[in-house]
Amino acid sequence: MAQQVRVPAEEWGAYDWSGRAIKRHRMEVRSAFGFRESTQEDQVQLAQWLAAELCPVELNRERLAEAVVARCRKDRLEPPAPAKVTRLVASAVNTFEEGFCATTVERLPAASRSRLDDLVADDDGGEGTVGGGRTFFTELKADPARWAWTVS
Rank of each mutant, 00 (worst) to 15 (best):
M1N: 09
A2P: 03
V5Y: 04
V5S: 00
V5A: 04
P8T: 08
W12A: 14
W12V: 09
Y15C: 04
W17H: 12
S18M: 13
G19H: 09
R20P: 06
R20W: 10
I22P: 05
K23G: 14
K23H: 14
R24M: 11
H25D: 15
M27K: 14
M27S: 15
E28V: 08
R30S: 09
A32W: 11
A32S: 12
F33C: 12
G34V: 11
G34K: 10
G34P: 08
F35H: 13
R36F: 11
E37Q: 14
S38L: 04
T39F: 13
Q40M: 14
Q43C: 03
Q43H: 05
V44K: 15
Q45Y: 12
Q45M: 10
Q48P: 03
Q48N: 09
W49K: 03
L50K: 12
A51C: 04
A51V: 11
A52G: 00
C55A: 07
V57M: 08
E58P: 04
E58W: 04
E58N: 09
N60I: 11
R63T: 06
A67H: 10
V69M: 03
A70M: 07
K74H: 14
K74L: 14
D75H: 15
R76I: 05
R76K: 12
L77I: 10
L77M: 06
E78S: 13
E78V: 13
P80N: 03
A81Y: 14
A81L: 11
P82Y: 00
P82I: 03
A83E: 07
K84W: 10
V85Q: 05
T86L: 05
T86P: 04
V89R: 01
A90Q: 08
A90D: 11
S91Q: 06
S91R: 08
A92E: 01
A92N: 02
A92G: 03
V93N: 02
N94H: 11
N94S: 11
E97C: 01
G99Q: 01
F100K: 09
E106W: 13
R107K: 13
L108K: 02
P109Y: 15
P109C: 13
A110P: 04
S112D: 09
S112H: 12
R113I: 02
L116T: 02
D117K: 10
V120A: 06
A121D: 10
D122W: 15
G125F: 15
G125N: 07
G128K: 14
T129M: 11
G131T: 00
G132D: 07
G133R: 13
F137P: 04
F137L: 03
F137I: 04
F137V: 10
F137E: 01
T138P: 01
L140D: 01
L140R: 06
A142E: 02
D143F: 00
P144K: 08
A145T: 13
A145P: 03
R146G: 03
A148N: 01
W149T: 05
T150H: 08
S152G: 07
S152N: 09
